[in-house]
Protein backbone atom coordinates (compact mmCIF):
# COMPACT_ATOMS: atom_id res chain seq x y z
CA UNK A 1 0.00 0.00 0.00
CA UNK A 2 1.32 3.39 -0.95
CA UNK A 3 2.12 5.96 1.73
CA UNK A 4 -0.38 8.75 2.37
CA UNK A 5 -0.37 12.12 0.64
CA UNK A 6 -0.15 15.40 2.50
CA UNK A 7 -2.95 17.72 1.44
CA UNK A 8 -3.55 21.30 2.53
CA UNK A 9 -6.51 23.31 1.27
CA UNK A 10 -7.38 26.91 2.07
CA UNK A 11 -10.21 29.07 0.79
CA UNK A 12 -9.59 32.82 0.54
CA UNK A 13 -12.02 35.76 0.84
CA UNK A 14 -12.81 35.77 -2.89
CA UNK A 15 -13.98 32.14 -2.76
CA UNK A 16 -10.95 30.61 -4.46
CA UNK A 17 -9.64 27.44 -2.86
CA UNK A 18 -5.96 26.70 -3.14
CA UNK A 19 -5.03 23.05 -2.78
CA UNK A 20 -1.47 21.86 -2.20
CA UNK A 21 -0.71 18.18 -2.46
CA UNK A 22 2.49 16.29 -1.74
CA UNK A 23 2.47 12.77 -3.07
CA UNK A 24 4.69 9.92 -2.04
CA UNK A 25 5.84 8.14 -5.18
CA UNK A 26 9.04 6.84 -6.71
CA UNK A 27 8.19 8.18 -10.23
CA UNK A 28 10.69 5.89 -11.94
CA UNK A 29 11.18 6.94 -15.56
CA UNK A 30 12.10 3.59 -17.09
CA UNK A 31 15.26 5.22 -18.49
CA UNK A 32 17.57 4.37 -15.63
CA UNK A 33 19.65 1.28 -15.06
CA UNK A 34 20.50 -0.35 -11.76
CA UNK A 35 24.00 -1.29 -10.55
CA UNK A 36 23.94 -4.54 -12.53
CA UNK A 37 23.01 -2.78 -15.77
CA UNK A 38 19.41 -3.88 -15.84
CA UNK A 39 16.77 -1.32 -16.79
CA UNK A 40 14.67 -0.23 -13.86
CA UNK A 41 11.07 -0.58 -15.05
CA UNK A 42 9.00 2.57 -15.42
CA UNK A 43 6.74 3.23 -12.48
CA UNK A 44 4.91 6.52 -12.32
CA UNK A 45 1.60 8.16 -11.56
CA UNK A 46 -0.60 8.27 -14.65
CA UNK A 47 -3.85 9.83 -13.55
CA UNK A 48 -4.61 12.39 -10.90
CA UNK A 49 -8.13 13.50 -10.04
CA UNK A 50 -9.40 15.89 -7.43
CA UNK A 51 -13.03 16.03 -6.43
CA UNK A 52 -15.10 18.36 -4.29
CA UNK A 53 -18.53 17.09 -3.26
CA UNK A 54 -18.63 14.58 -6.12
CA UNK A 55 -17.62 17.20 -8.71
CA UNK A 56 -14.30 16.72 -10.44
CA UNK A 57 -12.27 19.92 -10.05
CA UNK A 58 -9.02 18.66 -11.52
CA UNK A 59 -8.16 15.82 -13.82
CA UNK A 60 -4.62 15.32 -15.05
CA UNK A 61 -2.62 12.79 -17.02
CA UNK A 62 0.97 12.50 -15.89
CA UNK A 63 4.04 10.89 -17.33
CA UNK A 64 7.57 9.94 -16.33
CA UNK A 65 8.81 13.55 -16.61
CA UNK A 66 7.20 14.47 -13.29
CA UNK A 67 9.61 14.48 -10.34
CA UNK A 68 9.85 11.96 -7.55
CA UNK A 69 7.61 12.77 -4.59
CA UNK A 70 5.63 15.26 -6.69
CA UNK A 71 4.15 18.48 -5.38
CA UNK A 72 0.92 19.67 -7.02
CA UNK A 73 -0.79 22.98 -6.39
CA UNK A 74 -4.04 24.11 -8.01
CA UNK A 75 -6.97 26.44 -7.43
CA UNK A 76 -10.69 26.08 -7.92
CA UNK A 77 -13.88 27.98 -7.11
CA UNK A 78 -17.10 27.01 -5.39
CA UNK A 79 -15.98 25.45 -2.11
CA UNK A 80 -16.78 26.56 1.43
CA UNK A 81 -14.72 26.36 4.57
CA UNK A 82 -15.18 22.91 6.15
CA UNK A 83 -15.88 21.17 2.83
CA UNK A 84 -13.81 18.18 1.89
CA UNK A 85 -11.56 17.83 -1.10
CA UNK A 86 -10.43 14.39 -2.27
CA UNK A 87 -7.35 13.61 -4.32
CA UNK A 88 -6.74 10.28 -6.05
CA UNK A 89 -3.80 9.04 -8.05
CA UNK A 90 -3.46 5.88 -10.10
CA UNK A 91 -0.06 4.69 -11.30
CA UNK A 92 0.94 2.54 -14.25
CA UNK A 93 1.00 -0.59 -12.05
CA UNK A 94 -2.61 0.03 -11.16
CA UNK A 95 -1.75 1.08 -7.61
CA UNK A 96 -4.09 3.67 -6.24
CA UNK A 97 -4.22 6.06 -3.37
CA UNK A 98 -6.97 8.41 -2.22
CA UNK A 99 -6.65 10.99 0.52
CA UNK A 100 -8.93 13.68 1.79
CA UNK A 101 -8.48 17.07 3.40
CA UNK A 102 -10.84 19.54 5.03
CA UNK A 103 -10.76 23.01 3.54
CA UNK A 104 -9.61 25.58 6.07
Amino acid sequence: MADPMRIRANVDASGVTEVKVLMNHEMETGQRKDASGKTIPAWFIQNVTATHGGRTVLSAQWGPAVSKNPFLSFKFKGAQKGDKVQVTWVDNRGDKRTDEATIA
Binding site: D3, P4, R6, K20, L22, N24, K68, N69, F71, S73
Partner: peptide, 12 residues
Protein backbone atom coordinates in the same frame (compact mmCIF):
# COMPACT_ATOMS: atom_id res chain seq x y z
CA UNK B 1 10.33 25.28 0.27
CA UNK B 2 6.56 25.29 -0.13
CA UNK B 3 5.80 21.67 -0.80
CA UNK B 4 9.00 20.26 0.65
CA UNK B 5 8.72 16.44 0.38
CA UNK B 6 10.46 16.26 3.78
CA UNK B 7 6.90 16.52 5.12
CA UNK B 8 6.28 13.01 3.84
CA UNK B 9 9.15 11.75 6.02
CA UNK B 10 7.87 13.79 8.96
CA UNK B 11 4.45 12.16 8.68
CA UNK B 12 5.92 8.66 8.49
Amino acid sequence: QDGNPAELWEAR
